[in-house]
């Protein structure tokens, strides 16, 4: 009866996570900007004990901080996002990609490499500044 037990455990885990974070998940930020328009990339929640803060960057791109540390959201051709923590799962939204990264983080905090944005100055495709693309 391995499979039913595993399914049951997973359901229990999901319930526990929902119970623990449900309140925070229900409070996805909708803080209005000073001008009255809502930032389309805004979220502010606690997920698995981590503070996830989303907002629009200087170019209007989605930007996210995990416990204050920047996490690079890498846009994919399918419209989704991957992160430096999980390069292989394209998630449909910045928030989903951030949660997926937190799922893998364990107790670690992000390093500066996880948040650096490269500048494409090398025509052959590298990032000579050594920043993460």
């Amino acid at each position: 009866m391995i499979v039913p037990r595993r399914v049951a455990l997973r359901s229990l885990f999901a319930l526990a996570v929902t119970a623990f974070t449900g309140g925070a998940l229900g409070r996805v930020a909708s803080r209005p900007e000073p001008g009255g328009t809502r930032d389309p990339h805004a979220f502010d929640e606690v997920y698995r004990g981590r503070r996830l803060l989303g907002f629009s960057g200087p170019g209007g791109e989605p930007t996210v901080l995990v416990d204050g540390w920047p996490l690079h959201l890498m846009r994919c051709a399918d419209g989704g996002y991957v992160t430096p923590i999980d390069h292989y799962e394209s998630c449909p939204t910045p928030l989903a990609a951030t949660r997926a990264a937190v799922d893998e983080l364990g107790t670690a905090r992000l390093s500066p490499l996880a948040g650096a944005h490269g500048v494409p100055t090398d025509p052959t495709g590298g990032s000579p500044r050594g920043v993460h693309a």
Binding site: R75, T124, H132, A133
Partner: peptide, 13 residues
């Protein structure tokens, strides 16, 4: 690390 570019970022991959 320095050569990972995703394909929706408008950069050379």
């Amino acid at each position: 690390i320095d050569h990972y570019t995703a394909d929706g970022e408008g950069r050379r991959r």
